[in-house]
Amino acid sequence: MTFKSAILAGAMALATALPALAADLPAPEGRVVLEVSGGIANTNGDGVAQFDIAMLEGLDWREIETYTSFTEGMQTFAGPTLVSLLAAVGADGTTMTATAINDYFVTIPVDHADRHNVILAAEMNGKRMRIRDKGPLWVVYPLSEADAAKKPFDTEMIWQLNRLEISE
């Protein structure tokens, strides 16, 4: 499945409202794995910011050890922090709608990114995640084993993520 090209549209209201932050992002060279839209200042398309794996690797890439209620035992995840992604796109909003390849979606408060050190995991246990492994991106909240059992962020931990929309 490829992303449909953005239709021609007028300039983004937010982009013009925040000219000081506005900056163009480099265009993705590889396959696009994530498209950010909504309240963002920096774009590389028609009001959207598209990322390939190389661009994501250029963000604040972290490796974390954590537990999830969907997996057995401790897992190692690696990927950019959500904070660094939001900064890269110049996000301005309080919530984001995270959507998966199959159009499943959840709403995540923007401030979770910083407060819970959320990462957009692209690798699990040293391997790039395929779609069948819940890739290409998995929103991961680092948790202790005990906390994970209580499933505090199971709703927010969307997998097969490929779209983010920032809103008020």
């Binding site: 499945m1 490829t2 390849i101 199959n102 395929r130 779609i131 069948r132 492994d133 819940k134 997998w159 097969q160």
Partner: peptide
């Protein structure tokens, strides 16, 4: 063919 692969991948993940 890519669309079919993605569909297969998604089905795989759901059966998992």
């Amino acid at each position: 063919r890519e669309d079919v692969i993605v569909a297969a991948e998604l089905l795989w993940s759901r059966t998992d």
